[in-house]
């Protein structure tokens, strides 16, 4: 299977899984969105050397993964390129910050190494948080949540269409590259000379198809509003969502303000002595 086909299948599969999970979920998408945004905000706000504090924040990801039956490995496979990018972001830190902050058993740990690690953990946690949130709500419910939070209709429609457009774009790339390869046997990739016309044509063709998708939405009553609910969420009171959001945000704030893991470690150490 080609990488493009794999990417398309992955997107479809994720979309289908998210739709299924969102149908069963009793937690309102607004609560999930708020928790995710709060989580990302708090994770990012941790100081650059606070590795233990950040590790505490992984509790949310682990508990969500277990409770929602979400696979970490599948998540890693789907997000591997973004995760690789996140790892690369901090790769230069050890060269920029050579200040020694710790020495354990003959190993010198510099500030750059610690900040690289925190950046890596922050990246992994935030990417997983966003991925898990998407897998629990799906794009439709996510857009509905955005509308509930008074995000303008136009902006929400753009989010929805960009998501749909990615699939349309990938399919068009697949068709066009197949047509190219069939008439250019033995050639590796697309020749640089045709990149310009290829990209231009790709844009026109994918835009035309995206327009058709949008027309199809308009003709079936879509006007930028999400008036409907997903089966299973009909009976869900806002109470459950509020408890979910308040509970998690409270825990995040606690983990951010109180060094729980450090304190626990100190307690263990004092018992040992």
């Amino acid at each position: 299977m080609s990488k493009l086909q794999q990417a398309i299948d992955n997107l479809h599969e994720a979309d289908r899984e998210a739709g299924k999970r969102s149908g069963k979920s009793r937690i309102h998408p607004v609560s999930r969105l708020l928790v995710c945004v709060a989580y990302i905000g708090i994770v990012v706000s941790f100081p650059k050397y606070d590795v233990t504090g950040l590790l505490g924040m992984s509790l949310f990801i682990i508990i969500t993964g277990i409770l929602e039956d979400l696979s970490f490995i599948k998540g890693f496979q789907r997000m591997k390129y973004i995760l690789a990018f996140v790892v690369l972001l901090g790769a230069v830190n050890p060269f920029l910050d050579k200040r020694i902050v710790m020495q354990t058993g003959g190993v010198t740990v510099t500030g750059g190494m610690l900040s690289m690690m925190t950046l890596f953990i922050k990246g992994v946690l935030t990417v997983y948080a966003a991925y898990f949130m998407f897998m629990c709500t799906g794009i439709e419910q996510l857009c509905r949540a955005l509308r509930c939070l008074k995000v303008p209709k136009g902006a929400v429609t753009v989010v929805l269409l960009i998501y749909r457009y990615i699939i349309v774009l990938l399919k068009e790339i697949q068709r066009m590259s197949l047509a190219y390869r069939l008439r250019a046997p033995g050639q590796k990739g697309i020749h640089i000379k045709v990149w310009g016309s290829f990209a231009g044509l790709l844009l026109l063709r994918s835009m035309e198809r995206a327009q058709n998708v949008y027309d199809s939405m308009l003709l079936r009553g879509y006007d930028g509003e999400f008036q409907y609910e997903i089966l299973g969420q009909e009976k869900t009171g806002k109470g459950l969502g509020a408890v979910y959001a308040a509970g998690w945000i409270g825990i995040f704030l606690l983990l951010r303000c109180v060094p729980v893991f450090q304190m626990a470690g100190n307690i263990f150490l004092s018992i040992g002595q």
Partner: peptide, 28 residues
């Protein structure tokens, strides 16, 4: 539509068929 692929944009058949009625306020 002539091209069904453009007409269907949701994950499952049920979701896609329900899209129109839902937009017109039909529930449950």
């Amino acid at each position: 539509f002539q091209d069904s692929e453009s007409q269907l944009f949701l994950s499952t058949v049920y979701e896609d068929v329900a899209f129109g009625p839902r937009n017109y306020g039909c529930v449950g």
